[in-house]
Write a protein that binds this DNA or RNA. Structure first.
Lengths: 244, 244
DNA sequence: ATCATCCAGTGATCCGATCACTTTTAGAAT
DNA sequence: ATTCTAAAAGTGATCGGATCACTGGATGAT
């Protein structure tokens, strides 16, 4: 019998082509924003039909590895070398999920802040300071690209660990989707700013323990607000005795 | 001039169809493993060409939201409701990245173990015990589906926080890819088992502090091995002359 | 009852044509 | 010479249909 060691088609042709496209990008030394050859040319290059090639491109586009711009071209996306990401498919997130999300952040972000206090570079301190003004993501109706990164993202990046930064970024990306629907969290913007400032100073001064506890308090406060919104939803408006 | 508030095509048709497919799945109450209508029928349903529909399906398949089986049908995948995931595109990971990965786990997993000690259910304890025998992923040449989840995955699930479980799962998924290339890490399987057992007991007994420290030690040991392999690669075969 | 075969259902790929958007180019107006 | 406008070229997006390849169930012989 034998498993037909050669020539066995485990995966679809379009999947194979997708891998070849990635390899092509790597081999060509292309990086984010660079353009690829036209689709018809790529199809010829890989010896497949334009439709098949197109499916491959869509697969890569779905994960942010590529960007297809109608009438313009195919470009390398931002997520090609990324390891952890938010599910691009996920739509709006329920308030319950938002609470779970914040609990997860409460579990891991303090430690990340402590790491940042130890590993942060001078540039990190500078970026962190700039991020203070951006604060928690301003309520943009349209999620415009390349908006300045928010404080927590920069903080995670300062930890010096790319993976941790990607994790926080993923959580905040999901969170952002959430905020478009429910504007509850982050009610007190002034308090937010003060807490961020305190964390900034602790990280700048290289105090891991203080950075840890301040971040913990900050997220605990946010969690309180979110949980309050949640229970307010479950027991609406009310004095109480409300069922539903 | 105005921004033509209506009818403006921000995203491609295939992208819109992808969203419609997700909505269709949700509205139909389908869950993982359930089958969708045939592609031609779906194309008719959404009023697009089969090629366009196919691109939409590929986008969803790329993130594990769907599964297309040649000759069989289209099925709901495992990642439709997931929030955080490993980049499906990423190929092999360098040893340097593996070290970064383990450092990230060292930063967050102890806290997760502590949470598990507090929140674990009786069923979690049972699953955790079973996972002890599977130990750290056996070196499978072929990543077969539905293999029993490894200890760390089950541990994270016992934390009661879905997001944290997804994060750990993502890290281990990336890691698995890594192990296919480099078989260095997890050298001492017996020691691994003993440390897992100790963590299991601490979680079972509801001791968060002990669970924390044991997990921390366990990962620190793994990190040591990985860093050793890394420096051995940089300074091959050497007696010492170790720097750094 | 068992097994090999056939066949209908369904996804995968191909081909070619046409539409839609973007960018560049050429020309006109100033 | 500069600026604006319009045409044209380049490139992705969608369409329509035909054909191939795989799977799973039905068929039928043993």
């Amino acid at each position: 019998m034998a498993f037909s060691p050669e020539g066995l088609h485990r995966e679809s042709l379009s999947q194979q082509v997708a891998d070849q496209v990635v390899e092509f990008i790597r081999r060509s030394g292309l990086s984010e924003g660079d353009s690829l050859p036209p689709t018809r040319e790529l199809a010829r290059l890989f010896g497949v039909n334009t439709g098949t090639l197109r499916e491959a491109l869509r697969q890569l586009e779905a994960t942010g590895g590529l960007s297809l711009r109608h009438g313009s071209g195919v470009y390398v996306g931002p997520n090609l070398d990324r390891l952890v990401m938010a599910n691009p498919t996920s739509v709006t997130v329920s308030l319950e999920t938002a609470v779970v999300l914040i609990r997860a952040r409460l579990a891991i972000e303090p430690r990340i802040a402590a790491l940042a206090a130890v590993h942060r570079s001078d540039q990190d301190v500078r970026l962190l300071r700039e991020a203070l003004s951006v604060a928690s993501t301003p309520p943009d109706p349209v999620p415009h690209k390349s908006s300045k990164p928010n404080f927590h993202r920069v903080l995670a990046r300062a930890s010096g660990n790319q993976i941790l930064a990607e994790i926080i970024d993923s959580l905040l990306t999901v969170h952002r989707v959430e905020q478009h629907t429910i504007r509850v969290v982050y009610s007190d913007r002034k308090k937010d700013f003060e807490q961020h400032s305190a964390i900034y100073e602790a990280v700048r001064d290289g105090d891991p323990d203080l950075s840890f506890s301040l971040t913990e308090e900050h997220l605990a406060d946010i969690l309180t607000v979110a949980e309050g919104a949640l229970s307010a939803k479950d027991h609406p408006a009310g004095v109480m005795a409300s069922r539903e």
